[in-house]
Amino acid sequence: PAHPYDRLKTTSTDPVSDIDVTRREAYLSSEEFKEKFGMTKEAFYKLPKWKQNKFKMAVQLF
């Protein structure tokens, strides 16, 4: 299930529990994912792991 970005980011005051914290981005809706990352999930997962992590750090999901 998708969760709002505000509850997934590492600085959230009301974090979602029971998620894989190493894959926070996977819980974003497709729309919100595209808004935050500027690309689709499919394109994101084709990137090298280090680049994925760099993007995730930039949007507080790492």
Rank of each mutant, 00 (worst) to 15 (best):
S17L: 15
E31W: 06
P4D: 09
D20N: 08
Y27L: 02
L47R: 00
Y5I: 04
F55A: 14
P48I: 00
E31T: 13
Y27Q: 04
K56V: 02
F62T: 14
T40E: 11
Y5C: 13
A43I: 10
S30W: 10
D6P: 00
A2W: 15
D6Y: 00
T13Y: 06
Y27F: 03
K51I: 15
L47I: 01
G38T: 02
P15V: 05
S29Q: 03
W50S: 04
L47M: 10
D6N: 01
T13H: 09
Y5F: 08
E25R: 05
W50A: 08
S17P: 15
Y5W: 11
W50V: 11
E35L: 13
E35Y: 07
D18K: 05
K9M: 12
M39T: 03
D14R: 04
A26D: 08
T40K: 07
F37N: 00
T22D: 07
L61G: 09
D18Y: 03
F37V: 02
N53G: 04
S17R: 10
L61M: 07
S30L: 13
E42Y: 13
T40R: 02
K51T: 12
T10R: 00
V59T: 07
D20K: 03
E35I: 08
W50K: 05
Y45H: 05
A26G: 09
M39A: 01
H3S: 03
S12L: 01
F33T: 02
T10D: 15
E42C: 11
K51Y: 11
Q60M: 13
E25C: 03
F33G: 00
K34I: 14
T40C: 14
A58H: 09
E25I: 06
F55L: 15
P1K: 15
K56M: 05
L28H: 03
Q60G: 12
T22Y: 08
S17C: 14
A58C: 09
Y27E: 09
V21C: 10
T13P: 06
K41A: 08
R24K: 06
K51N: 10
E32F: 06
T13M: 11
R7T: 11
F37T: 01
W50C: 09
V21D: 11
S30R: 13
S30D: 15
P15A: 04
M39P: 00
N53V: 12
R24V: 05
P15F: 04
A43W: 06
P15Q: 04
E31F: 11
K36L: 15
Y27I: 03
K51F: 09
F44P: 00
K46A: 12
T11S: 11
P15H: 03
D14P: 05
F33L: 01
F37R: 00
K34S: 14
S12N: 04
Y27W: 02
K51C: 14
G38S: 09
A58W: 07
H3L: 13
E31H: 12
T13D: 13
F37K: 02
M39E: 01
F33P: 05
I19T: 04
T22H: 08
K49N: 04
N53M: 09
K49H: 14
K46W: 11
Y27V: 03
G38V: 07
K46T: 13
Y5Q: 04
L8P: 08
R23Q: 11
A2V: 15
A2D: 11
K46V: 10
P4M: 06
E42F: 07
D18G: 14
V59D: 11
I19L: 05
T10G: 03
K9R: 01
T11I: 02
L8I: 07
L47W: 03
T10M: 06
K9I: 12
P1T: 12
A43H: 10
K46R: 13
L28G: 01
A43L: 13
P15G: 05
T40G: 07
Y5G: 04
Q60R: 05
L61T: 00
K56A: 01
T10Q: 06
I19Y: 03
P1A: 11
T10P: 02
Y45F: 04
A26C: 11
T11R: 00
S12T: 10
D18R: 01
R23F: 07
P48D: 06
F55I: 13
P48C: 05
S12H: 05
L28R: 01
F55M: 15
K54L: 13
S29L: 01
F62S: 14
K49L: 15
R23G: 05
P1Q: 14
E32R: 08
K34D: 08
F33E: 01
E25M: 05
W50E: 10
E32N: 05
A43K: 09
E35V: 10
Y5N: 07
K54P: 01
K34L: 14
T22P: 02
K51A: 14
A26S: 14
A2T: 15
T11Q: 07
K46D: 11
W50T: 05
H3I: 15
R7P: 12
R7N: 10
V16H: 06
T10F: 09
P1L: 12
Y45V: 07
T40H: 10
D14T: 06
P1M: 14
T40P: 08
E32M: 08
K9V: 14
P1N: 10
R7C: 15
V16P: 06
L28M: 07
M57F: 06
V16F: 09
N53F: 04
R7I: 13
P4A: 11
P4V: 03
K9F: 12
S29M: 02
P48Y: 02
N53A: 10
T10Y: 12
M39H: 01
Y27K: 04
A26N: 08
L47Q: 06
E32G: 03
D18E: 10
D18L: 07
E32L: 02
D20S: 03
A43E: 15
K49W: 10
F62E: 12
E35H: 09
K56S: 02
K34Q: 15
K56W: 08
T11F: 02
F37A: 00
R7W: 08
S30Q: 12
P4H: 06
R7L: 11
F44H: 00
P4K: 05
K41W: 11
Y45N: 09
A26F: 12
K54M: 14
L8M: 02
L61A: 08
T22R: 08
G38P: 01
M39D: 00
S12V: 01
Y5E: 07
K36G: 01
D6S: 00
S17K: 14
T22F: 07
L8F: 06
V21K: 07
T13I: 11
P15Y: 04
S29H: 09
F33I: 01
P48F: 11
A58I: 10
S30P: 14
S17V: 12
P4E: 10
V16R: 01
Y27M: 01
K9D: 13
E31V: 09
K51E: 13
K56I: 04
R7A: 11
A43Y: 09
